[in-house]
Design a protein around this nucleic acid. Structure first.
Lengths: 155, 155
DNA sequence: GGTGAAAACCGTAGGCT
DNA sequence: AGCCTACGGTTTTCACC
């Protein structure tokens, strides 16, 4: 079970994933009804996909604005030297406002998704946390006004 | 129930959310044990938060690379005219490779998160789908080599 | 607002095909 | 690999506090 090929998934696995991608709290028996198999089969397939690592977990989707977090933005980071990459990334991981972190190729070395309560929270984050990390040369911020789409890939 | 203030949430709600943010399949009785309340209470609180719209759903987190989708990237879109915004967004929503879509302020009008199978799939998407949409002036792509972090905000 | 218990439903394991 | 069955756990509701 160490391959990383999609070939080991059959159409039943894909059907199960498609349902769970939309709502990870769907009961197994409900999936079983939709797929015309028994609940035990869903259980076995889900377990297999968790073991292979295709399923990594599940997340609640929340409206962060309703919780007082009005700002969502993306921040590209330029480093002074490419070799600072992992050191800087480790420090960034400590910052709880950063919810996604990517190593990227092209104009930036690191790319972040960040959630803040308001603009002054963001300003403080940039000035006092991000830009004081050693190795960070500059940052470039894209502020989101509205998220129009948040879904998983269609299998 | 039409307010969008966090004030209507008490510390029990926050505790429940904190647990569910990490794993949306946590059984209510398990949350109840951790929060020292009954299962019925968790049920009522969850229902309230769903009705208010704080909880919007739940998603399975999957390893897209293991499903044959090796490319994750962000694409910024410049429009010829700002007024094309909603028309272009509507067309973009039809494209299943686009899993997140934001209206943004700053250098781009629209910002996308995109999942593709490989570079040629991405190249085709850009050339044949995105750049043929009327009103799209130019696109700018950041390709992710590795996602190091994917989590929710800490409440 | 919370509790505790009942009823319906679900997750899980094991034996069978 | 899937089905069935059975048990224990979970969800959901509701009378009561």
């Amino acid at each position: 079970m160490e391959f990383t090929k999609s070939q080991q998934l059959d159409s039943l696995d894909i059907d199960i994933l498609s349902i769970m991608l939309k709502d990870s709290r769907t009961p197994f028996l409900e999936i079983a009804r939709q797929c015309h198999v028994s609940g035990g089969t869903i259980h076995v397939r889900m377990k297999k996909m968790e073991e292979i690592g295709i399923i990594k977990g599940s997340k609640l989707i929340i409206d962060t604005a309703k919780l007082g977090y009005d700002i969502c933005c993306f921040i590209g980071i330029n480093l002074e030297k490419a070799s600072y990459l992992t050191d800087v990334a480790e420090k960034l991981e400590q910052i709880s406002e950063i919810i996604e972190l990517y190593y990227t190729t092209g104009q930036y070395s690191i790319f972040l998704k960040v959630i803040c309560q308001n603009i002054s929270h963001l300003q403080k984050l940039l000035a006092e946390k991000l830009q004081t990390i050693e190795g960070v040369q500059s940052t470039s911020t894209v502020i989101c006004l509205l998220q129009k789409l948040d879904r998983n890939i269609k299998l």
